[in-house]
C-alpha cells in the first residue's frame, strides 16, 4: 500500500478535527478527498506531512511508520498546499532550487530536474521569471513542478485549484491524473469542488472529521440512490446526516 492510515485522531482543544479515521491508498491510484470546509481535510494533510503530530492512530507510507521514519517518508512525499507557498520575490528557478536543496539534492541534479518538470508543465521559458509576475494558474503549476522535483511516489494536493478559473482547474486536474496513469504516482487530491471528480474516481468523503464514505463516485451515487455526486454529497453531509451518531 502507498498510504495506510489507521484509527487516526486529532483534536484542537476540545474540538475533534479527526476521529478514528482509517483508509488505504493503492500505489498509482488517483484518490479524491472530498469534504465541505472544516471537514478535516487540511488537518489530515497536516498529519500526513508531519506538520501535525498524530495524537491517536498511525500513518504508514510504503510500510514505513511516519513517526519513526520521518526523513524517508518525506523523501517520498510531494505536497501542494492550499495556500501559495512560493517566494514571490524569487524567480521560478530560485524557488525550485531552494526546494531541491532542502531535499538534500545536488545542485546539478536539481537543475536537470527543474528543467524537465517545467518543460512538462510548459513553463520552461519562465524559468528566470519572478514568481510575482506569474498568474495564479502558472504559480500553481510551479508548485506542482516543485512538489515533483525530488520524484516523490505520493503527491498530496490540498485544494490546489482554489481561486483558479474553470479551464485552468481542469487542466491541472487532467495533468495530475496523467501523472498517475503514466508515472504510477499515488495522488490524494483534496477538494470541495465536485466537478473535479470523475465517475470512476475513488472518493473518500470526509465530514466532521469522520470518513462518511469510501467508494467510487458512481458507487456513492448508487449507494445513496442519487442521480449525481452533488446530490450524494448533499445527502451524506446534509443536516439530517449530522444528526446521526
Amino acid at each position: 500500500m502507498a498510504i495506510v492510515v489507521e484509527n487516526l485522531g486529532f483534536n484542537y482543544g476540545a474540538r475533534a478535527a479527526l476521529s478514528d479515521l482509517s483508509f488505504e491508498l493503492q500505489p498509482g491510484s488517483f484518490n479524491a478527498l472530498l469534504g465541505p470546509n472544516g471537514a478535516g481535510k487540511s488537518t489530515l494533510f497536516g498529519l500526513l506531512t508531519r506538520l501535525l503530530a498524530p495524537q491517536q492512530g498511525d500513518i504508514r507510507l510504503f510500510g514505513l511508520p511516519i513517526r519513526q521514519h520521518a526523513g524517508a517518508v518525506m523523501r517520498r512525499l510531494g505536497v501542494v498546499f492550499q495556500q501559495g507557498t512560493l517566494d514571490l520575490d524569487l524567480s521560478v528557478a530560485q524557488n525550485l532550487a531552494y526546494h531541491g536543496a532542502l531535499q538534500g539534492l545536488p545542485r546539478q541534479h536539481v537543475q536537470t530536474r527543474m528543467r524537465a518538470e517545467l518543460d512538462r508543465l510548459e513553463l520552461g521559458d519562465r524559468l528566470h521569471e519572478r514568481v510575482r509576475n506569474l498568474n495564479g494558474g502558472h504559480r500553481r503549476r510551479v508548485e506542482i513542478a516543485r512538489a515533483l522535483l525530488h520524484r516523490p511516489s505520493v503527491l498530496l494536493l490540498d485544494e490546489a485549484t482554489v481561486g483558479l478559473d474553470t479551464q485552468t482547474r481542469a487542466a491541472l486536474n487532467d495533468y495530475v491524473r496523467r501523472l498517475c496513469q503514466e508515472d504510477g504516482l499515488t495522488v490524494l487530491w483534496a477538494t470541495h469542488l465536485i466537478e473535479e471528480i470523475d465517475a470512476d474516481d475513488r472518493v473518500l468523503l470526509l465530514h466532521q472529521g469522520k470518513l462518511r464514505a469510501d467508494n467510487s463516485a458512481a458507487g456513492l451515487c448508487r449507494s445513496t440512490r442519487t442521480i449525481n455526486l452533488t446530490q450524494a454529497f448533499a445527502k451524506l453531509t446534509g443536516p439530517q446526516q449530522e444528526m446521526q451518531p
Binding site: 510500510g63 524517508a72 517520498r76 536543496a101 531535499q103 539534492l105 545542485r107 541534479h109
Partner: peptide, 27 residues
C-alpha cells in the same frame, strides 16, 4: 516489509546536509 524503497536522487550522508545549508544560505 512492502519492499525496497529507493530514495532516488537523494544524496545520502553529509553532502545532503551541505546542500541543504547551501540552499538556505542562498535564499
Amino acid at each position: 516489509d512492502s519492499g525496497t524503497i529507493i530514495t532516488a536522487g537523494f544524496c545520502a550522508g553529509l553532502s545532503a546536509y551541505g546542500h541543504c545549508f547551501g540552499g538556505i544560505l542562498m535564499r
